[in-house]
């Protein structure tokens, strides 16, 4: 049995069903992200695990123990909030020690644990400062130390990076992951930032309308999206309308080009999808789908250059590495692009 088991979880506010038949199993030490747009129910799931919301139905078990009837202070869970939620009247050290003091840990052990936690988050000398004297990134690290100090069974992170600026966000998420790996603590991370979720997680749960649309590793979520929503929400996607002319062999016509995908397809019209990095400039072996396109925009993203092109009525984005010896085409250039059938996803209607 999984360490954290969520089964058939439902939550309604009035007549609005916010979470529907949500199932999730998380192994001990695993880092799982709940990813989805605002209002998809990800924070509600997290708050039900924490005990701040009571499920309308369903079960939550931690280490085999049903926790639905337990109050938040009985669940032994650590939580980091989006807005830090440090106690403003307490110093950094007192904040970290709060949970230990409540549990009546002896003062000397408490002080040692606080020192250990502050060292873990890289702020060993800031114990005497008050929260208002810290930057946002420092406050969030203290909040993490406070949550970890009680040695919780499960760590919940509710969009902990969204209030921080981009650079701090990247470095802090790496630090969070490092600490999580070091402590091997089972973690649920809520975010609406796909890059954050894909970069930090063992597995990602993509949520939409209160439902888990797909649960998988970042590789699976990105490369083999299970639904149209997941495909469109995670990463950039090119959508290509095609007519299936031979369903058995999966031969489709795109404009005047015909190509076989090598797998059976439903008859009629389908939407094919591929990532920008699956589209190459020029013809290449193993890429039988060739399209002529006109370059619209050229965007420099550092190591990568993103080209926006128009192939007939299909808008395409394609990525190429930024190599000084290979200048990108200019806007207005007419180029040939190629796609491998293996990289084409067939989206449900």
């Amino acid at each position: 049995m999984a360490f954290l088991q969520i089964a058939h979880l439902e939550k309604s506010f009035g007549t609005t069903r916010v979470v529907r038949d949500f199932d999730l199993s998380i192994e001990k030490g695993e880092f799982v992200s709940l990813l989805g747009p605002s209002g998809c129910g990800k924070t509600t799931v997290l708050r039900m695990v924490a005990g701040f919301e009571t499920p309308s139905s369903g079960a939550i078990a931690i280490d085999g123990r049903d926790v639905i009837a337990l109050r938040p202070n009985q669940r032994h869970i650590g939580m980091v909030f989006q807005a830090y939620a440090l106690f403003p009247n307490l110093t950094v050290a007192e904040n970290v020690a709060f949970g230990l003091k409540v549990k009546r840990m002896p003062a000397d052990l408490r002080a040692a644990r606080v020192r250990e936690m502050l060292a873990l988050i890289g702020l060993p000398d800031l114990g005497n400062r008050y929260p208002f004297q810290l930057s946002g990134g420092q406050q969030q690290r203290v909040a993490l130390a406070r949550a970890l100090a009680i040695k919780p069974h499960v760590l919940l992170l509710d969009e902990p990076l969204s209030a921080l600026d981009a650079r701090i966000r990247v470095s802090l998420r790496a630090q969070i992951r490092e600490i999580q790996r070091e402590l091997q603590i089972t973690t649920i991370f809520v975010t609406h930032d796909q890059e954050e979720a894909l970069s930090i997680s063992d597995r990602v749960v993509v949520m939409n309308g209160g439902v888990a649309e797909q649960v998988g590793t970042p590789f699976e979520i990105y490369n083999r999206p299970a639904t149209r929503f997941v495909a469109q929400f995670v990463g950039t996607l090119n959508l290509i309308e095609a007519d299936v002319i031979a369903p058995a062999t999966g031969t489709v016509r795109i404009g005047t080009t015909e190509v076989s995908l090598g797998r059976p397809l439903p008859a009629g019209r389908v939407t094919l999808a591929c990532r920008p990095e699956a589209v190459s400039l020029g013809a290449a072996e193993g890429r039988p789908l060739l399209l002529w396109a006109e370059i619209g925009k050229v965007e420099f993203l550092g190591a990568v250059i993103r080209l926006r092109a128009q192939a007939g009525r299909t808008a395409l984005s394609l990525d190429m590495f930024n190599r000084p010896d290979t200048p990108p085409p200019a806007a207005g250039d007419r180029v040939q692009v190629s796609i491998s059938p293996a990289d084409l996803l067939v989206l449900e209607a």
Partner: peptide
């Protein structure tokens, strides 16, 4: 802030604490 109460509660504190 609501989060202060929730943070205290999840760290094991009662309402009185």
């Amino acid at each position: 802030k609501r989060e202060w109460r929730e943070a205290a509660e999840i760290l094991g504190a009662s309402g009185a604490q």
